[in-house]
Amino acid sequence: MSAANPAQRAAASPQAPYPILELIKLHKRFGDHVVLEAVDLRIEPGELVCVIGPSGSGKSTMLRLCNQLERACGGQVIFDGQDLTSSLVSIDRVRRQIGMVFQQFNLYPHLRALGNVTLALKRVAGLPRREAQAVALDALERVGMREHANAWPSTLSGGQQQRVAIARAIAMSPKIVLFDEPTSALDPTLVGSVLAVMRRLREEGMTMLVVTHEMQFARAVADRVVFMADGKVIEQGPPEQLFTSPRDPRTAAFISGESN
């Protein structure tokens, strides 16, 4: 297993020859409604990829297929060399290596900030309590929430809750973190703090797949931007190219609509 070998991870540059996550010809329907149609996507280690597109374009569904919160109707999800759509794969073992951050934060309201972060460290990674707390405090430090470790989620602002949720995801040392519109539920004044944390993670070399409406963020921070519409990847490329000279008229229309 190529699991968590630090040397290997450090060696993985953005130009590594193999993708950490690859979606191949993914199809998804809800009833008769086609949500995703033949979606292909490759994420290299260390990359930050932003997915943009109008609502209903299937981008959140695609993200939820990456850790199998939704099941595909056809196609493959290859994570770290394993096909997650195979019934032979133990999905719980894979998911500990894939962090996820939700639009609605989904913090556990019955646990304090620290307890939110330590829960999976204790129950999934099997760390003893003290060690789990040390790892969790470190993760909270990285998102600037260490001094709120003992706070109940309901007492925190939306931005603070989302940063705790990010700490919860990165504490497990995942190989990739999926972000599902992480700032869409936030008060506009609180968006900046969350984006700053994501920017820092990018500098630390975290691999991230981000579904977002934050065009400025995508343009400034992403290595690659993917534009989706009607369940298909319309085009992708470096942010400057995609934002300044989009090839597809739908991309151009979306970008000019969003920037107004």
Binding site: N67, D92, G99, N106, L107
Partner: peptide, 15 residues
């Protein structure tokens, strides 16, 4: 309990 609670826990690898 909102479904996001299940999803958050399951996506962290809990059974």
């Amino acid at each position: 309990i909102r479904p996001g609670q299940w999803e958050a826990a399951r996506s962290s690898g809990m059974g």
